[in-house]
Write a protein that binds this DNA or RNA. Structure first.
Lengths: 230, 230
DNA sequence: AAAATAGTGTCTATAAGACATTATGTC
DNA sequence: GACATAATGTCTTATAGACACTATTTT
């Protein structure tokens, strides 16, 4: 455990960290990735988002990927990250001055097949309406991340980063409803989303459910396009 | 002049800086605030945007204000600043590793009455289509700042940060046209901007020009509202 | 009266939003 | 055939965009 040095806190120069607010959606709920904080008064309870210092040869982007994967347990190839905001309040961290470049991360739940990517002792998905008391300014970082996610979802196709490869229009509608926290009219939604041309129908349907099979779709490409959807 | 220490560049930890891309509009052109860079091969030519290190007791916001005012010469009360993006490439600065939290700054030209805020030896307003060769990654920072400005202008009222207190609808239209680099239909613009309700008509007109006087308006408040205008 | 910009309205096309019924699988 | 969700269209209202003339001041 690291302790304060004799140098007064306000006089130490800042060190740089990268933190990742990662979201995923399952059970019709938004969840955020939390890890234990080994620091009083948290004593290894889930109390923070994954993050850590930048290595001397690392960019903030690289450090965000490294800590999101090693501490957050999410595989690099499943993770979308974009820079969110830089938090530089003097007393963010009680031990030393740390400036954090925060990242917004999105992961489609369906690809998280390995146990380490679901819930382990080292990292857990927690409902955003059931967050525990959090360390540092991590509640604020999550708030800003969620705000950014909700805003981006309405004028880009960033939601594709939360969807599995193939999905039905109802799946997509439910994802928008979950992220935005509001109901959407099914008929208007379908008209609008199909007209944008970002989706491709697959020749297959999703059968085996106890109702009429639904057509499967996928996004035409992986880039996030600036298109108004909702 | 600072020189490299014997420690290899890639092994030094980063220090933190705050840089400000400040824009203003005059002569119907967007301009950015540049300062001399005292470093080969620039030898005090205009080659950078104002910025500098964070003091140990300073947030990035505070450092951005400090450097924008002291090095950029723009008075604090005339300046609007918002965080833009954090640049952390390893070799941004040839001397030492510097991570820069960049800020987007806006100033209404009309308030810049003091000589120091216009053009001096220490800082100059340069047309964005006439930028010289720039130091570090400052051209990239300016590019990102301009992109952000153009994007924000279309769905918020951030343009008020470039306008004087009182202005005519033509003034406002020209400001949009200058920032966006495209013509706007006068009648549609007036209908739309008046319907948003963010403007207040003043009981005065702008007289003394050799044509019909124009009504004067001002923004109802100083906050930036998320409203689609163009 | 000439010059210069201010100020205004209509029409058309497109988009947004409210709303209910039929279709097709599984069990 | 009962159940469950998929799939679809119309009407109304609001918004966007193209477009040209009259009004008012100064000189």
């Amino acid at each position: 455990m690291k302790h304060s040095s004799p140098v007064p806190h306000e006089l130490r120069f800042a060190v740089l960290a990268a933190d990742a607010v990662m979201f995923t959606v399952f059970d019709g709920r938004l969840h955020v990735r939390l890890i234990p904080v080994h620091l009083p008064p948290y004593f290894s309870h889930l109390a923070g988002i994954p993050g850590g210092l930048l290595a001397p040869t690392e960019t903030a982007d690289q450090a965000a990927v490294r800590h999101a994967t090693t501490k957050g347990g999410v595989l690099h190839e499943h993770l979308y990250l974009e820079q969110l905001y830089t938090f530089s309040a003097i007393n963010r961290d009680p031990r030393n001055r740390v400036v954090a470049v925060a990242y917004l991360g999105l992961v489609p739940w369906e690809v998280l097949t390995k146990t380490a990517e679901r819930d382990t002792a080292a990292a857990t998905w927690v409902r955003i309406d059931k967050l525990p008391k959090l360390a540092y300014d991590h509640r604020e970082i999550i708030r800003v991340g969620l705000e950014r996610l909700r805003s981006r979802v309405t004028y880009t196709t960033i939601i594709k980063q939360l969807m599995p490869k193939e999905f039905t229009l109802t799946d997509l509608e439910v994802m928008y409803e979950t992220v935005l926290g509001q109901d959407i009219d099914k008929r208007n939604f379908r008209k609008k989303v199909l007209k944008t041309g970002v989706l491709q129908v697959l020749p297959r349907e999703r059968t085996g459910e106890q109702h009429r099979p639904a057509k499967l779709y996928r996004f035409l490409n992986r880039d996030i396009e600036p298109i108004a959807i909702i």
